[in-house]
């Protein structure tokens, strides 16, 4: 069986051997990077700087939440505002793999900058098993280049430290609980963030739409789960499709975008089945999205398992 407490002891020991000097940890607000940060900070203390990059592609209220999480974790941290930089780099980028490469490269540039500032040679990442498995290499096919593995730029100088490489999400959560990390139960959120929930070009307007739709899906599903109307899915979110369709709003023809809802049951993210969300809940979500977001006039629900689908669309 998997013993979280043994894992923590061994991981701290290993990190102590691996890191000589200062390190920067890439923090996203999710459970993986938070757990990695705590393990490394237990190993090297104040020699660790936690960096959160505000890409402009985060969920609603994320920055505030991350700041309070980092306070709780009691690690040194810095928040870098890189919104303009990311949107600029993503201009005209349509292909999902290209997007991932652009984002992975941008992240590393920022971390390298920060590392240089404090004289760190190491970059700690919360990479977990599905990240490197799906990124491919050698015999393994590339399903998607995760920003922290397959999308790392060539010639990067920072040495990587990845204490969670052999764990899956359920195991990281166990470790997180053992360490008292408050975000342990948070649903997974991809590193490239809303960029891969916006099919087609990523613009500030598209990000706003995807962010609002995601927030509505999260609110409605969490409310229904709390009321006991459904089981809380493993992951649940919305994405924006660049497909427009005809509608009618207030006796006037509308031609608006499409939002898809995705919710799945999984343990480790390597296989998933779509969640059986009650129609009443889907209905509430659909009404809120089409009423609150005038640019959207159609909502669809994704009923694909993994495989053959992946959980995220890009």
């Amino acid at each position: 069986m998997f013993d979280a407490s043994d894992f923590i002891d061994e991981a701290i020991e290993k990190v102590r051997e691996e890191i000589d000097g200062k390190a920067v940890v890439a923090t996203s607000g999710g459970v993986d990077s938070a757990v990695a940060a705590v393990i490394v900070s237990r190993a090297i203390g104040d020699n660790l700087l936690s960096v959160y990059v505000d890409t402009g592609l985060m969920r609603k209220g994320e920055k505030k939440q991350v700041a309070s999480m980092l306070e709780d974790l009691d690690v040194n941290y810095e928040i870098v505002d890189a919104k303009d930089e990311f949107f600029e780099a993503l201009k005209g980028v349509l292909d999902p793999e290209d997007k991932r490469m652009v984002i992975g490269g941008k992240f590393i540039k920022i971390f390298e900058r920060k590392a240089k500032e404090i004289g760190a040679e190491y970059l700690v990442q919360g990479t977990i098993a599905p990240d490197w498995i799906e990124s491919g290499g050698d015999l393994r096919d590339t399903i998607k280049s995760h920003h922290n593995v397959g999308a790392l730029p060539e010639g990067m100088e920072l040495k990587l430290v990845e204490p969670l490489r052999d764990l899956y999400k359920d195991e990281v959560r166990k470790v997180g609980r053992e360490l008292g990390v408050t975000v342990s139960e948070r649903q997974p959120f991809p590193g490239p963030a809303l960029a891969i929930r916006i099919l087609g070009e990523v613009t500030p307007e598209a990000a706003e739409t995807a962010r609002d739709a995601c927030a509505i899906v999260e609110e409605e599903i969490e409310k229904s789960a709390e009321n006991g109307d459904m089981e809380l899915p493993w992951q649940y979110f919305a994405g924006l499709l660049p497909i427009r369709s005809v509608g009618v709003r207030g006796d006037i023809r509308a031609y608006g975008y499409t939002i898809f809802i995705r919710a799945v049951q999984s343990v480790d993210g390597m296989t998933a089945s779509y969640s059986r969300i009650p129609h009443e809940v889907l209905d509430d979500i659909s009404i809120r999205i089409t009423n609150e977001l005038p640019q959207v006039n159609r909502v669809v629900y994704d009923i694909t398992n993994k495989p053959p689908g992946t959980i995220e669309w890009e």
């Binding site: 498995i133 393994r140 096919d141 390597m270």
Partner: peptide, 19 residues
């Protein structure tokens, strides 16, 4: 034996969990 599967590491995990 790794033949490049998406679930090679899962096989390792299941065996590990079975001690």
């Amino acid at each position: 034996v790794d033949n490049g599967g998406q679930w090679t590491h899962r096989e390792w995990r299941v065996l590990r969990y079975l001690d």
